[in-house]
C-alpha cells in the first residue's frame, strides 16, 4: 500500500525524506535506558538458550553417574540433579521451551484479540454481543482452571497444542481493550471518511482500525510474552503444562523447589533466569509503550 519507488520516480521527482514511524519509535525506544537494558538482556537470554548448549560439555539428556546432586563446579557449571543431569544443560533446554512457548502464545493471543476486539467494536450490534459474550464467558472461567482440567489431554511431546490452548485463554482482556478503542477509532473522522467513500467494512478494519491500534497491540503482545511464560511456569509447576520428557522453567522449578533447602543450585539458577527473562520482557514492553505514545515520554 505504500508508494513504490518507480511511482515516486515517475510522478513526483525529488521527494523529501520523512522519518518513518517505525524508525521514530525505534529511536525513542533505544533512547530510553530501560529499553536498552531490556533489549540487551533478552537478546542475551536468547543467545544463552540457543547458543549455550553448543558450548556446554553436557547435553540435557546426558547423565553423569559419577556426580549426583553435586554443587556447581568447573565440571558442572550449575551443579547436577539427583539423576546426575547437568543443571546448566537442562536449564537451557527448559529456557528454550519456555521462550518459544511464550512468544508463540503471545503472538496467537494478540492476533486473536485484535480480530475479535476490532470486529466487535466496529460492527457493534449482534456481532459485538456474541463476541462479547464469548469473551465474558472465557473471563468467567479462570484460564488456569480450564487448562488444568484439560492437562491430561496434552500428552508428552504435544506442547504445540498446549501453546494454542494457552493462547486461547490470554486474549480476553486485550480484546476488551481493543474493542473499546475500536469503538472510538470508528468515530474518528478518517474511518468515517473511508466509510463514506464506499470502502467495504472488513477492509476498513484491516486497513484503518487495526493498524491504528498497532501500538497497543505491539505493547500488549510483548507483555503477553511474559504473561505466557509465567502462566506456563505455574501450570507446569503443578504438572498441568509441559509434560515430561519435555522440560520447561515450570517443571524445573517444581523439581528444584523440593530440593532447594539442601541443594540451592537446583532452584536458584532456574528461578533467577526466569525472573531475569520476564523482567527484560516487561522492561521492553514498558519502553515500547513510551516510545509509541509521545505524551508519556515526559512521564518516564
Amino acid at each position: 500500500m505504500t508508494l513504490s519507488e518507480e511511482q515516486l520516480a515517475e510522478g513526483f521527482g525529488a521527494v523529501s525524506k520523512v522519518p518513518s514511524r517505525t524508525r521514530v519509535v525505534a529511536r525513542r525506544f533505544f533512547a530510553s535506558t530501560q529499553g536498552r537494558i531490556g533489549f540487551a538482556v533478552l537478546a542475551l537470554m536468547f543467545l544463552l538458550a540457543f547458543a549455550g548448549p553448543l558450548i556446554s560439555p553436557w547435553s540435557y539428556t546426558d547423565k553423569d553417574f559419577t556426580a549426583f546432586m553435586q554443587p556447581p563446579s568447573t565440571r558442572h557449571w550449575f551443579g547436577t540433579l539427583q539423576t546426575g543431569s547437568d543443571v546448566f544443560a537442562v536449564t537451557l533446554r527448559g529456557m528454550q521451551k519456555s521462550l518459544v512457548v511464550g512468544l508463540l502464545a503471545a503472538l496467537i493471543s494478540t492476533a486473536l484479540a485484535a480480530v475479535v476486539g476490532s470486529f466487535g467494536g466496529y460492527f457493534l450490534g449482534w456481532t459485538d454481543r456474541t463476541l462479547s459474550w464469548v469473551t465474558d464467558l472465557l473471563l468467567v472461567l479462570p484460564a488456569f482452571l480450564v487448562l488444568a482440567i484439560l492437562s491430561p489431554v496434552f500428552g508428552p511431546g504435544q506442547w504445540a497444542l498446549f501453546v494454542v490452548m494457552l493462547a486461547l485463554f490470554l486474549w480476553m482482556v486485550t480484546s476488551k481493550i481493543v474493542r473499546g478503542m475500536a469503538i472510538s477509532v470508528k468515530q474518528r473522522e478518517f474511518v468515517q471518511a473511508a466509510r463514506y467513500m464506499g470502502v467495504p467494512p472488513v477492509r476498513i478494519i484491516f486497513r484503518h482500525v487495526i493498524p491504528n491500534l498497532s501500538s497497543l497491540l505491539i505493547v500488549d503482545a510483548t507483555l503477553n510474552v511474559s504473561t505466557a511464560i509465567l502462566t506456563e511456569t505455574s501450570l507446569s509447576y503443578f504438572g498441568f503444562g509441559i509434560q515430561p520428557p519435555d522440560v520447561s522453567f515450570g517443571t524445573l522449578i517444581a523439581d528444584g523447589s523440593k530440593t532447594a533447602v539442601y541443594a540451592p543450585w537446583t532452584f536458584w539458577f532456574v528461578a533467577g533466569l526466569l525472573v531475569v527473562t520476564v523482567l527484560a520482557v516487561n522492561l521492553i514492553g514498558d519502553a515500547l509503550r513510551d516510545a509509541f505514545d509521545p505524551s508519556s515520554g515526559r512521564r518516564r
Binding site: 511474559s226 503443578f238 522449578i253 533447602v261 525472573v275 531475569v276 520476564v278 523482567l279 516487561n282 522492561l283
Partner: peptide, 21 residues
Amino acid sequence: SFLVLAVPVVVLANVLILVAT
C-alpha cells in the same frame, strides 16, 4: 514493582518459604 511482576507466585511462595526457614 517491575521485579515483583517478573516473579510468578510459585517462585515467590517457594522463595518466601526458603527465606523464612
